[in-house]
Amino acid sequence: MNWLDKLTENVSRNVAKTSSRRGFLGGLGAMIAGGSLIPLLPVARADAMKQPEPPTADPGDPATCDYWRNCAIDGYLCSCCGGSVNSCPPGTEMSAITWIGTCKNPGDGKDYIISYNDCCGKAPCGSCFCNRNEGDRPTYRPHTSNDYNWCIGTKSQAYHCTVNIILGVAIK
């Protein structure tokens, strides 16, 4: 659910969100602590970031707040701004510094590690505002906080929109 339903004109989202709550950070912790250690992350080295196996399904419309990868987004969806779920709109610069969370893909039931990168250098896109906060924590823990403008280290720090990039599947 988000604050500004008027601006997204998507009231049905409220219903969807309330009925799909997961305590996922806690869940992830439990998985790491007690789960089996069969690595599903298909990359062993940081400098060889590969896309994971294509998921069995990637349900939903990335240009809606409900879309699973948007589970902790706070800002404009780049899909509505000339970019896509994982690419910035033309003429913007993707901030390398960001925060990283996890969202469950209802398509294959797996927890994906998602990097929320801001696209920077133009006035705010203004379309498709979303504010979802699964796993979000207050600003005193920046690496899990979506409240900051993460346009940091870019030529201009003006916030335009946010992409969400799959970094891999969380180890179960």
Binding site: I32, L37, I38, P39, L41, V43, A44, R45, A46, I97, T98, W99, I100, T102, I113, S115, H143, L167, G168, A170, I171
Partner: peptide, 16 residues
């Protein structure tokens, strides 16, 4: 497995 988990913890806690 440790290596994978270490890397995952790096991704989740540091890589941003």
């Amino acid at each position: 497995a440790d290596d994978m988990l270490a890397r995952q913890n790096y991704i989740l806690n540091c890589q941003g």
